[in-house]
């Protein structure tokens, strides 16, 4: 990952664009319930925004900037996803039953809360972290 040339344009565009992508990926994640998007797509897009950073800058620099252990993030994601399944069990429904309800809040209006979002958080984390682990490990191989 050492780029010999110091591509000024690339670096400056990345600085802006990667955060835009990151923000968009979070939007996609939440949009997933009713519009295109969701945990899988959002996770992949988050991974690509971080990968863009790695492509542009020095690996050591990004490791310092984002000191995240992606391996444990995979397990965290899986734990959340598997864990939400137990909500159904405690209530007496089959494993992985999801629940939702509509609430009306002042100013915001009608609002939906769903356990599927929690489940999707797990998927999001698992997918993003797995993609990052795979690619960074292969790339970091000497």
């Amino acid at each position: 990952m050492k780029w010999k040339t110091n591509n000024l344009l690339f670096i400056h565009v990345t600085r802006v664009v990667s955060f835009l992508i990151l923000a968009f990926s979070i939007y996609l994640f939440f949009a997933g319930h009713n519009d295109p998007g969701g945990g899988f797509i959002g996770g992949l897009m988050t991974a690509s925004s971080i990968l863009l950073l790695y492509l542009t800058f020095d690996k050591r620099k990004i490791d310092e900037m984002l000191p995240i252990d992606y391996v444990s993030l995979i397990s965290a994601g899986l734990l959340i996803a598997f864990g939400t399944g137990f909500i159904g069990l405690f209530i007496g429904d089959p494993y992985l039953t999801q629940y939702f309800d509509y609430f009306t809040l002042p100013w915001i209006g009608e609002f939906e809360l769903a356990t599927a979002v929690l489940f999707d958080v797990g998927i999001y984390l698992g997918v993003a972290a797995s993609a990052l682990v795979i690619i960074l490990t292969i790339a970091g191989d000497q």
């Binding site: 997933g32 319930h33 295109p36 969701g38 999801q98 309800d101 769903a114 599927a116 489940f119």
Partner: peptide, 16 residues
């Protein structure tokens, strides 16, 4: 499942 995006509802709910 309370969602209008069928693909995502299948992913997170029906075939979770």
């Amino acid at each position: 499942a309370g969602g209008y995006n069928m693909v995502n509802v299948v992913l997170v709910d029906f075939r979770g």
